[in-house]
Amino acid sequence: MGEEMDVKEIKNRGRIKFIIGGILIVTAVIYLIASSAKANTQYYLTVEETKMKYEQGELSDRNVRVSGAVIGESIAYDMENLTLTFTIAHLPGENAALNAEGGVAAALHQAVNDPDRETLDVMYEGPKPDLLVHEAQAIITGKMTLDGVFYADEVLLKCPSKYEEVSPEQSG
């Protein structure tokens, strides 16, 4: 009887080591996720939201990501200083709103042709991305500067009209 108890006790003591070890590792992983997420999570905003938050002073020195429609004629590349400037027009963030405008391609088309839309001037130091064209959707990451220009560290582009939501009229 007593011997059996001992065996159990030893077993349990052995287990506790492993449970403590396991908890330590899980804690470490959670800590890594939480601290990294805290330092690296960004707002994902529309042009209207960016302007609004900027005017309310909420964006001071904060990295944000903004999506908008590229206005083709605004694209300018300064070869001397290697800086790229362009303007994006407000594009609704909600898919429901995008669909109400007839899909992403139609919404982009509407956004760049509507003179009443909010726009945002963007500056970027680096090579001109291949997909930066009229009516592309730009997703830019960076900060608002004091003069109201968005200083981007990263420019991602999507051209949904071309490959996914194809309408045959465009190709025929």
């Binding site: 330092a39 960004q42 707002y43």
Partner: peptide
């Protein structure tokens, strides 16, 4: 209701030690 994103720095920092 707020859209957010996490970029490469999140993954690099969180998975690097692992």
């Amino acid at each position: 209701g707020q859209k957010v994103t996490v970029g490469p720095p999140f993954y690099e920092r969180a998975t690097g030690p692992l």
